[in-house]
């Protein structure tokens, strides 16, 4: 092929061109693998093994707790930006306006809380409900349910636990403001939720 003869005779420019081509080949392969790793993290980071507990204490107050695991099987470090845990009693016939809030815990780490690669983080929350207003609201719900033929105790009331975690993946940039580029933020943002026994 005459091109090979040409490349040999103009070896300096040919070498520079081939070196640059190799550099960009490496760059596209490395970038595609990073992209795969991000997609892997997006798909496989999950909340799991939630354990809800409710216990009535001898003084009439209520101890309510949630233990939940956040699994990070990916090769990316997870930087947690916010965590929230709420518990409420939900009237299923009027889910919007008939709520009794029981617990509301919201945490924004002042520094990034990290979850390493292939790591499982266990979150344990516990709250003592002794405030008479909340306890009387729960009693009101129990009495109302009894009038409709459903018997609950303080421990067996269907408390709805809502746990949310928001995190960023790795050190990838995520402060794009333009509406056209918001997909870049979404790409490296992880939002997981445990709500009423369901994992999202």
């Amino acid at each position: 092929m005459t091109i090979l003869v040409d490349l040999r005779s103009r070896w300096f420019v040919a070498t520079l061109s081939v070196a640059a081509a190799l550099f960009f080949t490496g760059a596209i392969i490395a970038s595609a693998l990073t992209y795969v790793s991000v997609m892997d993290a997006r798909q496989n980071i999950k909340l799991a093994s939630a354990v809800e507990k409710t216990e009535q204490l001898p003084d009439g107050s209520l101890r309510i707790s949630l233990t939940i695991e956040l699994h990070n099987p990916s090769r990316e470090i997870l930087h947690i930006t916010s965590l929230s845990w709420t518990v409420k009693i939900q009237n299923l016939s009027h889910p919007d306006n008939a709520l009794i809030p029981i617990v509301n815990v919201y945490a924004v780490p002042t520094e990034y809380a990290e979850i390493g690669k292939h790591e499982v983080k266990i979150y344990e929350y516990e709250q003592l409900v002794s405030d008479p207003y909340t306890l009387s609201s729960i009693s009101g719900f129990i009495n109302h349910s009894a009038s409709e033929g459903i018997d609950y105790t303080l421990e067996s009331v269907p408390y709805t636990h809502d746990f949310r975690v928001v995190a960023w993946l790795g050190d990838y940039e995520h402060d794009y403001d333009y509406s056209k580029e918001l997909y870049l933020n979404d790409m490296v943002k992880i939002e997981r939720r445990y709500y009423g026994g369901w994992y999202n």
Partner: peptide, 16 residues
């Protein structure tokens, strides 16, 4: 390869 990289990079600048 340079064209491929720049096209990919233009879509995903934060992971490339």
């Amino acid at each position: 390869p340079a064209i491929a990289f720049m096209s990919f990079d233009f879509v995903f600048p934060n992971v490339s």
